[in-house]
Structure formats: structure tokens, C-alpha cells
Design a protein around this nucleic acid. Structure first.
Lengths: 346, 346
DNA sequence: TTGTACGCGTTATCAA
DNA sequence: TTGATAACGCGTACAA
């Protein structure tokens, strides 16, 4: 086992000084061709690579991005990571991943672990618990220490930083517009309680569309679910929650849900009530997921463009890191949310 | 913007030496209670944290694990990451993620970027291209530099290191056993060409089960697909590939596929041929995916236990990192592959 | 009880 | 053309 070779070892071996080796390897004009040749050959032979850690210490720059997400086993978030990684790699950065698991304390701890020199900046999406507690002091602290943050998807007005979101409001609105255009008038909504920003915006989009078409929103058509429950692990429980919507409303002719799982479960429940999709009830979900595409019938959705969000977030962060002049001007990039039409609204 | 405070700054501010501050913060008995109090209060006020990079350089230990996977937008791999992250965090490590995107060169570059001091060891699953080329020199080099590797899922005999795999052979065998027990005799197999080790083992399990039950494998029931194509992006193409299987065989009464997408697509094709599932054809897939659970009918699968693999891999790696005595004894942990029965084999 | 010196691996500056 | 030195931030052995 040959350990990694260092400048010092090369210097000793060739009987020159460390700085000579360093310069020779960087092809400095100060060094004679003879010495350069010798050193470079030796370095190549022993496969010398500068030690990243030493460079980071010296340059006070790690060329590493920290990304903190609530959950990785999730199609949307993994697409975001892919986007971040893609751009980061292109621009010479590594990506270090922390999972908050939707927990406030894990989010805080994870950020503290990384903020102590391991990374140059954060890309993150806020955990549900943090949003509930509305405790954002760790973001403020990080930023005030000079470490930039780019937030995506689940963002919050209280924090001043760059942000990347999709147009949740517009996305929801066009989804409902689409349903109305297809003739629906009694459009049910399955959404979350209001503390998660995206749920709120999507609900508002639903409302706006109804208003614009002179349709009165009916509270009995709106189901607000407790987003803190992990329904993925208990699909039956979710379906039980949805069932009353159809039991007490026999006129529903369309349904919009703020995420994939709700929409899919609603489709199942509707089918169990004997409804045909899309003939009796049309369905649109909201997602970057894979289930919609493979469902039967395949489900129309508002696409979240996860990878694009990740790419954009990475560019924003790296631009800020590499811009010497500390512009205090933060921007919020809004990515359009496209409607993907599939069989459930044909 | 207050930059991160260092020992040096605290020392200057309090007019003591750096080492006094260092010792005071670590509660050394050498330092008077008075000084300790003063220093600790100051450090707390300014929220001092030791710089990870400096520690890494000093200790020649980064407490960071590098994980290289072919693809992150994939349920199985993201589960593995979750497992790795969970254990890593518990044991005081960070996780840095590199994506090979199934490409040999990206795998090599990614590893080189990280191997230069950024991490203490690797957890990885080999890219398809690397498996095809059978070029494993980068793994050998990494290991010979004293950086341990733990491989999972897609492993290779040529490299000596710790490994975590599921029992692909046994998993496939029990899947087919199950189909046979349910009365099936003409069991189709959809698999990949042989260069990816897992596909090979699963095919062997299928064969073994048939043999054990005195059923002759029929080549016309076996479909080998080109795994290098990204069928996820073109489901129609995949279904076109599968269609001939049913066109030329009207006796198929069960089907086993080596991954989720193949199984799901086969189910769709079978349905389009008018077969009922599971009445006419029973189906078992192989996966840690989310599609199977949500399919209709829901699909039986051999579970890959991604998170468990990740956890085990992380433990193996960290154990090795923290075991001073360099035991050259490598182990391969085999995780049992359970059959999850769902509606497609009821 | 406190401070000095050193080393981790690197690069930049300045001296020889 | 080459080499010595300092610095990045930290911890520790040893000297004061």
C-alpha cells in the first residue's frame, strides 16, 4: 500500500526544496526546464495530486456545495440533486448531501456540521417542522457568517437570499383552468394545511381559477389533509381520509390534488366508487413523480421541473460564490410550471 | 457580516495565546477556571466552532464518506443513500455524493476528485459502462493508496474489498418457486444481457428453480433486453420489445422480470393482449421501487432492501476506517432478498 | 498556569 | 534558477 505522495516526499526524493517542486508542477517560468522535466516525470510516476484539504485550508474555499433536503427517497428531490450535481461538477464543485428528514433539529445540526468550513454555500429546501415552528434563526446565522444560501421549492419570505421556485400559483391555476375548459364545474381539491408555502399557493391558484370562471368554491369540495403524516407508509389510511369526499358529494366531475400521492389515491377511491376516469371524473395532480406516468389511466400533472430547479439553484450559488463584489441583491427565480396532459384528462 | 471567528481572533481579543484558548475550550485541567470561564463565555458569544478543514488537515481524517452511484433518480439508489446518510450521521460522518451517470469516465473523474483528500473512503455501485469495459484500474489504484472501498449491489469479483449485495440468485429462485407453487408452468423471463452481474445471477436463479421442478427452460420464453437503453424515457419502445414474447407464446401463465420497469411494462402488454392478472398470468418483479406498490393490480416483487444495504455498507466502511489494525480480511455481506406478495400473484 | 514551537500540505512572497 | 519562510486554523508536546 503506497500512501498518497506529497510535495514534501517528492522534494526529499529529488533532493530539491518543496517550493521548487510546487513551482515545477505548476509549470512556473522560474524553474529550469531540466528541473521541471525531472519533477513532472516523478510526479506522474507516483501519480501526485494536490491534497484538496490543504488547498481548501489555504484558499479558504472548499469548492464544495452543501445541499440539505427533507427527504431523498422522493422523485422530486432526487431530480433536484441531479441538477445540482450536474452543474456543480461542470463548474468544479463537489456536492455534499444532508438529510433533514423533515425534522427541525436535524436540519439545524446538519447545517452546523457543514457550516464549519466544510462547504462554501448551501442549497436547501426547508423541512416541514421548521415551517411549522417558523424558526429560521439558523438560516439567518449562516447567512450572517458570510455563507450564502439558495433556497428552492419550500422557501420563506422572512429570509433574504436567492430562491428558486416554480410558479405554484400559476401551475395550480392552469390545472384548474384546464379542468374547467374540459367541462368540469364541481372540482374537488385535495390539499394540505396551510403552513407549507407551496400548498398554500396551489390552493390559491385553485381558488383564483374558480373565481375567474364565476364558480363559487364550495368548502365541502375541499379536503385539507395533515401533511405531517407519512401516508406513503399507510396508503389505506390516506384512502380512508379521502373517502368521505366522494361519499358526501355525488356531483364531483373533476379533482385537483396538490401532490402525486393524494391525486393517485383519490383516483383509486373514485374508481372504487364506480366512477370512470376521465369520463366521469377528470384528475390532475401536482408533481415531478414517476407514479403519474405509470398509473392507469396515466395521470395529468403540473410538472415541477426538479432538475431544472437544481441546475438553476447551483448556478445562482456558484455565481454568488465567484462574484467578488458582494452584491447584496438577491433574486427569486420563478420557473414556469407546465401542465402535462395525460389520459386522466383526455 | 461577521465572519467565522477563529482561535486566533479570540486569543487576540482576550490577550492570551492561541493554545490557551484551545485548551480552555477543551476544558483542559492545565487552564485556570478563571481563564476557562472567560474564554468559554467569549467563544459562546461569538459562536465559535472549530474549522473542519483545519481539523481534517491536522488529523489526516475528513470524517466524510464518498458515495458514487450510477443514477440518483432511482428509488433503489436513493434508498441506499438514505441508509448511508443515516449511519454516517450517527457515527459523525458527512456524505458527499458523486454521480457516474452510468459512464466510465465520469466514474473515474468523480473518484479522482474525491480521492485527493476530500474523503476517507468510498461506497459505490459500479456503472454499466465500467462493467462492460471491465476496466477496474481506478478501483485498484484507490485501494492501493490506502483508501477503502465498499461496493454494493453491482459488485465485481476482480476487486478485493468489502461488499454488500442481496442474494440475487436466491431471490430470483424463490420468486420462480413461488410462481410454480401457484401452479405456473410456462414462466417467461425478461432479463438483461449478461454483463451486469445482478442480471446474470437473477437469470441463474430462474434457471435453477425451473430445473429443481423438472421444467425445461424454453429459450422462446426468455427475452433479453439491451440494458444500456434508457427505456424510462421511451416506454413505448420497451413495450414494443416485449410484445413479441406474447405474440409468439400463447401458453405463458407467469412472468418474472429482473427489474420493475420490465415487469410493469410486461403487465401492461399482457393486459393489452386480453390477459387477466393474476388469473391468466401471474407476475413477479425485482425491485425496491415504488411503482409496484401502486400498480393495478399491485405487483409482487423481490425486495432489494436498499436502505439496509446502505446502512450495512456505511457500517462496514466506518468500521474499517476506525479499526487501527489494518485487517486485510474483506467480507461480503449478503442480505436476504424477500418476496413481497401482492395482487399480481394472488 | 500559560506560552512557544511544530506539523498537517499547499502556495505566494521574498531572499539568495 | 532555487530555496527559505509565512500563512491558512487547529491541537499538542514541551518549555517557561
Amino acid at each position: 500500500m503506497k500512501r498518497k505522495v506529497t510535495l514534501k516526499q517528492i522534494a526529499k526524493e529529488l533532493d530539491v526544496s518543496i517550493s521548487t517542486v510546487s513551482k515545477a508542477l505548476r509549470n512556473s517560468v522560474e524553474i529550469s526546464d531540466d528541473t521541471k522535466q525531472k519533477v513532472q516525470a516523478f510526479a506522474k510516476l507516483y501519480n501526485y495530486r494536490p491534497n484538496n484539504i490543504a488547498l481548501s485550508l489555504k484558499n479558504r474555499k472548499t469548492n464544495t456545495i452543501g445541499i440539505i433536503i427533507p427527504e431523498i427517497v422522493h422523485h422530486f428531490f432526487s431530480k433536484v440533486i441531479r441538477g445540482v450535481e450536474l452543474v456543480a461538477n461542470q463548474r468544479g464543485y463537489n456536492v455534499i448531501v444532508g438529510l433533514s428528514n423533515e425534522s427541525f433539529s436535524k436540519e439545524v445540526i446538519n447545517m452546523q456540521m457543514l457550516a464549519n468550513g466544510s462547504i462554501d454555500g448551501f442549497i436547501l429546501s426547508i423541512s416541514k417542522e421548521t415551517l411549522q415552528l417558523q424558526d429560521y434563526h439558523h438560516f439567518d446565522e449562516t447567512i450572517s457568517q458570510g455563507m450564502p444560501i439558495v433556497m428552492f421549492d419550500r422557501v420563506v419570505n422572512e429570509i433574504e437570499c436567492d430562491k428558486v421556485v416554480i410558479d405554484d400559483f400559476q401551475g395550480a391555476k392552469s390545472a384548474v383552468d384546464h379542468l374547467i375548459a374540459k367541462g368540469a364545474r364541481n372540482i374537488a381539491l385535495i390539499t394540505t394545511r396551510d403552513y407549507v408555502s407551496v400548498g398554500k399557493l396551489r390552493t390559491q391558484g385553485y381558488m383564483e381559477s374558480l373565481m375567474n370562471h364565476q364558480i363559487d368554491p364550495k368548502s365541502e369540495l375541499i379536503l385539507k389533509l395533515d401533511d405531517s403524516k407519512n401516508y406513503e407508509e399507510d396508503l389505506d389510511a390516506l384512502e380512508q381520509e379521502i373517502r368521505p369526499l366522494f361519499e358526501s358529494n355525488d356531483k364531483i366531475d373533476a379533482l385537483f390534488a396538490v401532490n402525486e400521492l393524494y391525486a393517485l389515491s383519490a383516483m383509486k377511491v373514485a374508481k372504487s366508487f364506480g366512477y370512470q376516469i376521465p369520463e366521469d371524473i377528470q384528475v390532475v395532480g401536482f408533481t415531478d413523480g414517476v407514479l403519474s406516468k405509470h398509473a392507469s389511466p396515466s395521470m395529468s400533472t403540473v410538472s415541477q421541473h426538479g432538475q431544472e430547479m437544481g441546475e438553476k439553484a447551483a448556478h445562482l450559488l456558484i455565481d454568488r460564490l465567484e462574484n467578488e463584489e458582494d452584491e447584496e441583491h438577491y433574486q427569486t427565480v420563478i420557473i414556469p410550471a407546465d401542465l402535462v396532459e395525460r389520459e386522466s384528462t383526455k
